[in-house]
Design a protein around this nucleic acid. Sequence first.
DNA 1: TAGTGGTCTAGACCACACG
DNA 2: GTGTGGTCTAGACCACTAA
Lengths: 235, 235
Amino acid sequence: MAKYQEIAAVLAKQIVEGDYRLSGKLPTEKELMDQFQTSRNTIRSAIGLLADQGYTYQVRGSGIYIKEINFDNSVNLNLVKGLTSEFREQVNQSKLLELSTVEATEELAKLFAISEGLPLYYVKRIRYLDQEPIRVEMTYYRQDIVPYLGKEIVEQSIYDYLTENLGLQIGFADRQISADYLTEEHAGYLNLQAKDPSLRIREKTYLTNGQLFAVATGVLHFEKITLFASGKVYQ
Amino acid sequence: MAKYQEIAAVLAKQIVEGDYRLSGKLPTEKELMDQFQTSRNTIRSAIGLLADQGYTYQVRGSGIYIKEINFDNSVNLNLVKGLTSEFREQVNQSKLLELSTVEATEELAKLFAISEGLPLYYVKRIRYLDQEPIRVEMTYYRQDIVPYLGKEIVEQSIYDYLTENLGLQIGFADRQISADYLTEEHAGYLNLQAKDPSLRIREKTYLTNGQLFAVATGVLHFEKITLFASGKVYQ
DNA sequence: TAGTGGTCTAGACCACACG
DNA sequence: GTGTGGTCTAGACCACTAA
């Protein structure tokens, strides 16, 4: 991990643990330079990461302020990480509904920019938070990038498996969010009624080299999960 | 505007106009340095802005790639700008439902970090896209920061008025997204049925100095609007 | 006025992609 | 191997906040 990423991780941990709750501010850039024995630009890169993640904002002439945001039961759309790490303590189960190999249809082949007929994994799971179903999730993975998926893996954190065991470098994800009626099938999984509202996320996940390797659709329990996003003004 | 912001604006315009469609890539950082006669870090700041806005991603050893994303009928959660500029040509109307001055209740006072009883503007509007209602929007503004709002303003772009006429420096917005049933009232505005799904955005908008000056709730037509968000992996 | 963050420069070395 | 972007340094000047 780069130095600025390590610094950001240290500061993020301190923020979460409430080390700066009294002042509501981080030390100044100058003080952080001394503390971490590094250049100003490196400190600024670290602070930039914190801002991107929704932890802080800076005010010229004044300092680095901590945002008081409650991320409970909320998925941060500015980040890419598994649900498991987003709700670290509480999400400990996935119920596997389907794990199969399918050939890329014309639509999927076009989406992934691969040839029609190439093999994809298809995974359908229910995710739980505090023993309650919160999300139905259907994902396709390119098999040339993810050569193996098994029941023992998809019932845990697929994200951890991809990054730690396969060494994949996940870079970014683009997401489209919408609301819709629940289908009878999904309502059953989520203990809701058909025609109830649902929050849908259509997600494309890319490696750092720009390769699209997973396409997912998530159907979320509208009463138990919200999304969070931080936006900036440009120009 | 800073040099890197101007460079980003030029490149964004070129991307939107399709100047790089053949290669799908921008020139290399080195070439951009020559082209804009500036240092590498300034170029990298500009490219960073484009990435934040969802236009591009970089691959080490390879280049700067353009994302092919269709933002049609989609609100980009990574940005803060008025609906009017998000859908520049098509959104040309707002129907004013209410414009009043209210005293901050205990809840609102706490949210804005102001004293109870201080005056706020309350604006309730319906926004249209291609003559169809797409969003009901209820917003509170701090009157000490927005000293005047009138019918002639709220039927146009409030965002433009705040930035251009009042000179407010809007910095960032935090948003919470959820799905819910439509109330009878909102269903009426959106030409939908009560109990249909709706996409809700609860938004807090801040000045660059960190002051919260507007709190809004948006109720979106679930069939006509989706949201877009780009997320990155950290560490 | 002193201190803070915002921008910019001109270098350096490294890790990775691609031919 | 060559070229690309990723990280890092050590400065400089400027714009803004706060006292």
